[in-house]
Design a protein around this nucleic acid. Structure first.
Lengths: 244, 244
DNA sequence: ACAAAAGTGTTTGAACTACACCCATGA
DNA sequence: TCATGGGTGTAGTTCAAACACTTTTGT
């Protein structure tokens, strides 16, 4: 960002979005089927090029909206990392800025067969090689999942996977799916409800499910409105994932 | 990263480097004095434009080398985050990928008065408004310092600020400078030496200083060679900074 | 009544804090 | 011998892991 008296080189700049959710007890990622070359027919992360006058987050939201048909997308979005520009796209040098979206399980509008079809896929199916992604998207996904796993430890962002109101058991299911571990329901309950500034009791209860009704919670005001830094350690001491 | 049948827009892509070190018990950042517009005469992070065929890390290393005169730069380099492209450079939309370098206190070659002069400045002088940086570099620096503070908690990267061999007291001085706190020497010693996979005793000792000689340590093999992921929790449980 | 899930209490052990104390060197 | 910093021992506390047990619903 300094001298550059000669006109600097320019690169196409893309945004890719790793949208994660939990469905059926599994961590899932939103993927599209590519309709054009390169990697035609292969699965890839949703994304696209940044337009002039656009900022990165704006571009990410726009692209994700276009490819899922969702207007106002739920959840929590943050920048993940940048990749490239060298040798990651057969068409030439492209820099991509990957983003991470943690969201409740929202339905993707199944577009007609002429549009790129977006759908949720279990992350495990990519990790075990059953599905292989276009470009360097497998690496980006791996980084995203690791980021998500780490964030649950010290931030209240596990709640971003839930709806507006949720039970402790639902929140625990998120942690179990993202970390791929089982957690003791009793100890998790104590830690979640006992951490100041994390959850707020709505006073309402679930009904109609099997077993005893559960209290409904929402994210506490402090945890929600840490504008720009929802990241900062709300969970202190952190909620550590079990190390084998 | 998807459809883009029309030729996508391109942006100049820059790299900026937040090089941090500890000198005189203070956390310091490497800044250059700009010789050209915009922001001529103001202090800024070292950096410059990515060249065709170059990768981000390559560009960061090259630029930092050019502006400090250092060939093989010491320390640990990682990507921080990307900023822009909208409205952060008066010349037009520029995307910048900021990088973070944690390094021992290396001397910057004081170039002639015609070159951009690089020098170390206490981070505190930027934080308290005594020095104000060009572009959005104050924000980038703030993010970098927060990243560095967080990394010391769960990674062995505090040692990146030290030379090849160092005493526990020197390592503690790093933590104290970066966090801006005092740490109990006895407890820090126990935690640092007692964490498996963190430090290796060289068997050698300091001599000539005041007080009892101290044992010299180096980073353990496991902590050094976590290629790509030196980040992954070596310090477990983490070495937490005191919360007031 | 019984199953199922929510939530509380209690015990144990790991680890951090605080601080007393001893060790090894230079002046 | 005294000052200075290096290093160990130990008591108190906080917190998480493990699990017995009670509560509240649906069937």
């Amino acid at each position: 960002m300094t001298q550059a008296v000669p006109a600097p080189a320019s690169f196409p700049v893309a945004v890719d979005i790793v949208a994660l959710t939990v469905r059926g007890g599994e961590l899932c990622v939103l993927l599209i089927t590519r309709l054009i070359e390169p990697f035609r027919g292969r699965l890839a992360l949703p994304g696209g090029f940044v337009l002039p006058g656009e900022d990165l987050v704006e571009a990410a939201i726009r692209e994700l909206g276009e490819e899922t048909g969702v207007e106002r997308l739920p959840g929590y979005l943050e920048q993940l990392a940048s990749y490239g520009p060298k040798g990651r796209d057969p068409r030439g040098d492209v820099l991509t800025v990957a983003h991470l979206l943690l969201a409740p399980d929202f339905p993707v509008l199944s577009a007609g067969s002429d549009a790129e079809q977006a759908a949720w896929y279990p992350v495990e199916r990519v990790a075990n090689g059953e599905v292989d992604l276009a470009f360097d998207h497998a690496q980006i996904l791996e980084d995203a999942v690791e980021r998500a796993r780490a964030k649950l430890e010290y931030s209240p962002l596990g709640a971003a996977f839930c709806g507006e109101e949720f039970t402790i058991a639902q929140l625990r299911a998120v942690y179990e799916a993202v970390w791929g571990t089982r957690l003791d329901p009793r100890n998790f309950h104590r830690k979640a409800t006992g951490t100041p500034g994390f959850l707020e009791d709505t006073g309402r209860m679930t009904a109609g499910d099997a077993g005893r009704p559960a209290a409904l919670f929402r994210l506490a005001e402090e945890a929600r409105s840490t504008a720009g830094h929802p990241t900062r350690a709300v969970l202190n001491p952190p909620l550590m994932r079990p190390r084998v």
